[in-house]
Design a protein around this nucleic acid. Structure first.
Lengths: 183, 183
DNA sequence: ACCAGCTTACCTATTAAATGATAGATAACC
DNA sequence: GGTTATCTATCATTTAATAGGTAAGCTGGT
């Protein structure tokens, strides 16, 4: 699946950028057209509708994100939590952007149905990964429920952290939120 | 300040609803017009531009929210934290809506400048209130820095909690995130 | 080697609808 | 008579989307 042409990938790159900084409802094919240097009609050639583009971008984002996390039990819990925070942090540090699905999650009621489903899938997969991380901690014996609660709290803290950081003092603020220790 | 007519208040009510469920960029004067039963031109009479409406709604929301919190040192820290969580919870429970400024915070890069400033003011005032709550705890002796960090974390958890809850299992999810105990 | 036919990737041109906004008229009320 | 609050009518833009054309490049058959 997903053998995309170079142009299609560029379109997705730009769309992802727009969604993460401005939101799904605040960019147009014309915006992308202006940046990439082809006409809006040509974007429709690669992605018949805006929703198709949204679905493709969200799916790619989710695949990459989950893949980058690796296996839940590959490291001790503390280390995995640190790595998970770092995934959000470095992604934010790169361009003061939201998590794509954090943004879409906020906008969820105004999204096309298929884009909405893909956004939900991101959270489902993240919850699954995080819950397995906490369950893999033999020492502290999390129940299924408490592992899930810990997962929810961490996910919420990070998604909310991005909003708060972007509105207040940026990376410095985000680091306070996640107790970031350099090195 | 802010002696608004009945119609202006209704317009603001509906606008607030739209922003909190769909976002600033996903509603139009026509949407409001259809709900309230007056023409879009009449909405422009009360609020010359969409940004003016956005500013008014955000300011009113912030005033009400901060006012509802009362004085930071009116209760013990634990109780104030519980009350603060409850403010978010009840507001969400009423209609599965985001915090107005959580939504605007996500969309911040695409907002008119004056709306952006008002959104930021909401967070500033919340941070100020929460930090004073933590600083009022004589027992655990928070430093200015650690009180601010606690405040940031709580704010981020709640804003993120709304996104995650709305995307996953609603109030049940939100309650897990905030360790909600009935009564 | 040639070339007919298909595919890819773009274009121009156009559409219908939505959007924020303005001008100017009208009626009610103080 | 002025103010308030609404209306009708209209505007320029923006938006997503479609139709139809063009040029380049590959592919398989002779």
């Amino acid at each position: 699946m997903s053998e995309r042409s170079k142009t299609a990938s560029s379109i997705m790159d730009i769309a992802e950028d727009y969604i993460r900084t401005r939101g799904y409802n605040a960019f147009s094919f014309r915006d992308i057209s202006a940046e990439i240097g082809i006409k809006t009609a040509s974007i429709h050639y690669h992605f018949p509708s805006k929703a198709d583009l949204g679905v493709a971008v969200t799916q790619r984002y989710t695949e990459r994100f989950i893949e980058s996390l690796g296996e839940p039990d590959a490291y001790p819990v503390m280390e995995q939590v640190r790595r998970y925070k770092e995934a959000f942090r470095s992604s934010y540090a790169a361009g003061e952007q939201m998590c794509l699905c954090g943004m879409l999650g906020a906008e969820i009621s105004s999204l096309p149905d298929n884009v909405m489903k893909k956004s939900k899938a991101f959270f489902d997969q993240n919850m699954s990964w995080l819950t397995r991380v906490f369950l893999s901690d033999k020492a502290s014996e999390y129940s299924q429920d408490s592992a899930q609660s810990e997962a929810l709290k961490l996910l919420a803290l990070l998604e909310g952290g991005l909003i708060v950081a972007r509105t207040l003092d940026g990376l410095k603020t985000f680091d306070q939120i996640i107790d970031y220790n350099p090195q």
